[in-house]
Design a protein around this nucleic acid. Structure first.
Lengths: 207, 207
DNA sequence: CGTTGCCCTAAGCGCTTGCTCAGGATCGGG
DNA sequence: CCCGATCCTGAGCAAGCGCTTAGGGCAACG
């Protein structure tokens, strides 16, 4: 029972969730939400996976929705941080775009359990929490659009429709969370590399 | 109450669902599943949208899951038929690939309500029904892979990783169902055109 | 040893869920 | 006028849901 059934490796990521019992519950919730979806997951299931009674959940979280919000918030923060650090990394626009896609995709593959919850359970959030998360997603979009725009301005890229291509690039990356490990024949690094190349072609970068 | 709240235009598509009341229920279920997800939708909600009592549902369908299965089955059949007719349409590999992406994407945009259910509620299906649907999806994959393979063989395309690129192309198209109409600034035709161009670049087709 | 505060559990409340069942309305054929 | 078939409803059952409440175990501190 101590080995997580199909969780991705859990190196550092929920370290910021401070009471240790709260972290155990949150990790259990990520697994359950990713496996069956938010609405199909019961609070009893979450508590059970964390080795606690159903009532224990409500000591650390006010509602089941608050759990989803914490997961979504932390996940979006992390993904956005990855993107921004790649975008500010220096180099040509092509180098920055490739690096951004690589790390963004690698995260969605490596942590596909978390990413699935973060990306696909968005409208299970309450009104207020959802608008907060949507603001984060707009910042994600802005980062990618900026890199592509700069590449166009510098003549590196040939992109007739910058907003549309931005949308497509992000959509491609995000959907990794859905299919990854359907059959496990690719490592996250390989997918990141493949996708970086495909995206460079999409923006018409010289090879 | 007679105007569907945000449904896509309903030209022909559920004509094969024969008792008219069963069709009304199915259309209502598509709307409800797309809006709130399968698990969050109640049979009372579905029946209510169809203007019937909760019990009426069970005259036409054995369970709520059977409804999802019928929707999923018909939707996958339709999407696959579109793909195959484009793939068998003649012309160069580039023309066939562009045509396939155009119609596949257009379907996912135009009928994004249906597509959302079809593509994202897959594992709410029971064991047996799910494996049936997965077989259809493998055929979808095979169609795209074949076109790309032929393009590579004829020298039209330059694709280092055919299975990986096939996966990416399909993933890109399918994810249209998730984001389309988030803001409604693009028509399905425009998205299809945009995506056909992007995909041709991904496979390294001469322009 | 007694007290305080923290973390947890057993039990269960009020409500909703998927689904059932006995029977009513409507209609074409005799 | 009655018949059976077809399609539907009102009422409700058993199970499961999110969440609450009263209290137990235990470490830290005087």
């Amino acid at each position: 029972m101590s080995t997580a059934q199909e969780t991705d490796a859990e190196d550092p990521p929920w370290a910021e969730v401070t009471p240790e019992a709260a972290r155990r519950l949150l990790v259990a919730a990520v697994d359950a939400f990713a496996e069956r979806g938010y609405h199909a997951t019961t609070t009893r299931d979450i508590a059970g996976r964390a080795g606690m009674s159903p009532a224990a959940l409500y000591i650390h979280y006010k509602t089941k929705e608050e759990l989803l919000h914490r997961i979504s918030r932390i996940g979006h923060d992390r993904a956005l941080a990855l993107l921004e650090s790649a975008a500010d990394g220096g180099g040509t626009a092509a180098e920055r775009l490739a690096s951004a896609v690589r790390s963004f995709v690698r995260w969605h593959a490596e942590r596909h359990t978390t990413a699935r919850v973060v990306q696909y359970e968005l409208d299970a959030l309450g009104e207020e929490h959802r608008t907060e998360i949507i603001a984060l997603r707009r910042r994600t979009d802005a980062v990618v659009r900026r890199i592509i725009g700069e590449g166009v301005a510098s003549g590196e890229f040939d992109v007739p429709d910058v907003p549309g291509t931005t949308l497509a690039v992000l959509s491609l990356c995000i959907d990794v969370a859905r299919w990854f490990n359907a059959q496990g024949s690719r490592t996250p690094d390989e997918v990141g590399e493949l996708y970086a190349g495909l995206v460079l072609r999409m923006v018409g970068a010289e090879r």
